[in-house]
Write a protein that binds this DNA or RNA. Structure first.
Lengths: 328, 328
DNA sequence: TTGTATGCGTTATCAG
DNA sequence: CTGATAACGCATACAA
């Protein structure tokens, strides 16, 4: 047990009666004579030595930290993403430097710039700033947003998810569909949820309406929209696809308040796969994002030492799961 | 914009025509001649210089990282805690190094040891390992668990919360109370939730039962307990205090399945203050932990440079909030 | 193979 | 008040 002083390689070298270089080799698993190996190991054990990662980072110009930039952690989707990324990193002996932006453009950019002085080994970010610039030289992955040709974008298969939702609703008997969304007005991978939905509706010849509001809108505007379509206690739509589970949750609450029965009168499908308390029941019927795999893939991309040509965009398969707001 | 090479203080010094020391002073806001100040600032701007935090950490033997150790992020209480801690740190220009343990004793200890080589400025942890040893010399705060006299324990006022829950149920007309808990068998600040509950019941002369299971137990054991107390479609208790919102959520789901109406037949109060999607409606009536303040207090303690005597234990006030599982 | 010496980018100590 | 220089702990090129 070292209590006061800082144990360095020098101390270990002295204790083991070998040179600094030899200790370094042993620490880094570079072959040395068995004899020395043992002596150094013993000294390390005895003194309780451990490497100073900052000295190492300084020397190597590279650290074991990966910067993860997310809007927040109270949104359960982001929380789960952070959770999975952290585990995936830990499995490879990397640590997560987590930064929260609340989607503020300036903060997003500031944190990215910070990454340079942090000498992080990579960046995984989920941002909204359209003009975000990422320093070249640092491996980066963006979740759900295309940041340009240098940055691989990892996302769920939003298009297929949208299609899947529409098909499921139609298959469940719905004949008047609606798509609802509140989100960034900037182009985004998640826009494809709508595209897939529209495609499936069109293909099936089912009438539909899309209600897309941008970020600044509050849910009360959705309420107005829904209210305007409630006549004689009945909603004009019998199937709603919401761009997120949060939205689905809010729509569900509003409709229930207005005595419209879900899933009897109207079926609702969300997107994300959020569960109560992270691991309990689904909040609603939903298109489940493969969060764990998205995290693993992102981490692998960041940490793949080879500068081999990495794909521009990776879309992971989604799945429908019934969570009580659809008949099946 | 620097693209390829690494800009160091030396570069800035050369550009500004001053010495290294002067640049360092300017960077660290140590007064220098106006003239030099300006020249250095200009050079910094021009070259896009930023400090290398590892070199700084190495030299200062201290970094701007704070290690945060939590079981996971899918539990919304932990997620919110991490969220608040991260913001509180960011407000003081510190970064969060987040590590997840899933309550594994060994991993908890391993991460704590890691903190030494990380030269972190502090540790905020929520752990379960009864034998956890924290290196002296690193400011540390433990959430909800007493780790010994050196480590300040920050928690909500669990005792008052327990009392509050019992009083509220009684005030709402309940006459047969139950306390339910699944948790660590090791002594823990959260045990006081029961103590306060018991005290309030005793004081009021209201009969009560405590069902306390330890970690290894699954919810099905609680189901068995509840089932055993359902007779002719009625539950023996008309008020239940659950040690966590998660438990309250599970109990609520089970009772609802068994056609016992909440809050009409039985009222339920949880503990934590978890909201759907982090910021929507409460999951249940609950004793709300002041998570934001707990985070802020923890961060302040960690970062208070003075080694002044810090209190052994800090308990922050809680509040009752109705979330639909109580009459009022 | 192993040991020695140098430099990574800072801050801090001294002379000037 | 400023400039040169020595550490901080490590990895590595080079010498032995």
């Amino acid at each position: 047990m070292n209590e006061n002083r800082k144990i360095t390689m020098k101390d270990v070298a002295r204790e083991a009666g070998v040179s600094l270089g030899t200790v370094s080799k042993v620490i880094n698993n570079i072959p040395v004579q068995q004899e020395y190996q043992l002596r150094v190991d013993a000294a390390v054990e005895k003194l309780g030595y451990h490497v100073n990662r900052y000295a190492k980072a300084l020397r190597m110009n590279k650290s074991s930290f990966v910067q993860v930039i997310l809007p927040n952690l109270h949104n359960p989707f982001f929380a789960k993403l952070a959770d999975c990324i952290c585990r995936a990193l830990a499995a490879r002996s990397y640590e997560m430097l987590l930064m929260l932006t609340e989607s503020d453009y300036d903060r997003e950019q500031a944190y990215i710039y910070l990454s340079e002085e942090q000498m992080v080994s990579g960046i995984i970010c989920l941002t909204y700033n359209p003009d975000l610039v990422i320093p070249s030289g640092i491996p980066a992955v963006s979740i759900d947003r295309n940041l340009g040709p240098d940055i691989t974008c990892v996302s769920s298969d939003n298009y297929a998810g949208g299609e899947m939702a529409a098909k499921k609703l139609i298959e469940n008997g719905c004949r008047h569909l609606a798509f609802i969304r509140i989100g960034s007005s900037l182009p985004n991978e998640t826009d494809k949820r709508k595209d897939g939905f529209v495609r499936a509706c069109t293909d099936a010849g089912i009438p539909f309406h899309c209600e897309c509001l941008n970020d600044s809108a509050s849910f009360s505007e959705i309420e107005s929209f829904l209210s305007a379509h409630i006549q004689h206690g009945k909603l004009d739509y019998d199937g709603i696809f919401c761009a997120t589970d949060l939205l689905a949750y809010q729509v569900l609450a509003f409709l229930t308040e207005n005595r419209i029965r879900v899933p009897k009168d109207v079926q609702i499908i969300g997107y994300d796969g959020v569960r109560h308390f992270g691991d309990q029941k689904l909040v609603c019927s939903t298109i489940v994002q493969p969060v764990e795999e998205m995290a693993r893939v992102s981490v692998n991309l960041i940490l793949s030492d080879s500068s081999q040509r990495i794909p521009y965009s990776i879309q992971l398969p989604v799945q429908f799961a019934s969570g009580g707001t659809t008949l099946f």
